Simulated scan of single mutants.
Amino acid sequence: MSRKPKLYYFNGRGKMESIRWLLAAAGVEFEEEFMETKAQFKKLLEDGSLLFQQVPMVEIDGMKLVQTRAIMNYIATKYNLKGKDLNESVLIDMYVEGIIDLMSFIIAMPFQPDDSKAKQKDLIKNRAVNRYLPVYEKALEGHDFLVGSQLSIADVHLLEALLMVEEVQDDILSLFPRLQAFKQRTSEIPTLKKFLQPGSNRKPIPDEKYVATVKEILYS
């Protein structure tokens, strides 16, 4: 029996959360080692496990993979979440890149000074409503999935992003009925429904402890 993938990151969302979502969507169980001390991070560096001296890092299929998008592309390809051909694959990549752009604003917000967070929240809402969400609303016209006839990495990312923007403003999808229906529909896919239940590997909204741990380990 092959070993479960092992994820090395902090006990929080950050750049690892989308990897957790993707593995969960594929029905793949995984283990996690949370970095809680600078010594743990230093050991990974000294072992040569972090090619660019950064996390996330995922051990899978005998490899130690770094760089978030490379990790996600490997998982998506391995578990048939990248479309049926090259044309679908590049469309999926385009949609994924847009979603990552949107999520990056949200991921950064907990690390900003308190007096900047309101401005960042306004920026997120503006970009979501006027730049990103309309693209996905249009793409879903007459379709259950963003690309093709089956779930892809783009759909998994989109569901994650929709839940994240709702945490910023809970009624933000009110102008996007197709996205509301998409959220409901994909949340009922068995593997994703399981991941959305309490007690799963899904991480909560970043709190002060998470932010302090990341800063202590990476920047002190």
Rank of each mutant, 00 (worst) to 15 (best):
S200F: 04
K125Q: 13
R13Y: 05
P198R: 08
F182Y: 08
L146K: 08
V168F: 05
N11W: 03
K6R: 13
E166Y: 02
Q150R: 12
V55G: 04
L192A: 07
A154F: 06
Y132R: 08
M94I: 13
R185V: 02
N11T: 04
M16W: 00
V58P: 03
E216V: 00
I172M: 07
V156L: 03
M16H: 02
S18F: 09
F52M: 10
Q184C: 09
G98T: 00
L162N: 04
L44D: 04
I205C: 12
M1G: 14
L50C: 09
E88I: 03
K6I: 10
A128S: 13
M35H: 07
M109L: 15
H143W: 01
A76M: 08
I99G: 11
K84C: 09
I19N: 03
L140F: 03
E36A: 11
P177I: 06
G14D: 07
V135I: 15
A76C: 09
A70R: 02
D171T: 15
L158F: 01
S174E: 14
M57V: 14
P5V: 01
I124Q: 06
L196P: 05
A26L: 10
K38H: 10
E97M: 08
R69P: 00
L179W: 00
V28A: 06
M109S: 15
E167K: 11
D114W: 04
V96R: 13
V90H: 07
L81S: 07
D101Q: 07
N80K: 13
G48Q: 05
K15V: 06
L179P: 03
K119R: 13
D207K: 08
D207H: 01
S18Y: 01
G83Y: 03
F34C: 12
F30W: 02
L45V: 11
W21N: 04
D115H: 13
E17N: 01
V168H: 05
M16A: 15
W21K: 05
V135N: 02
M1W: 04
P5I: 03
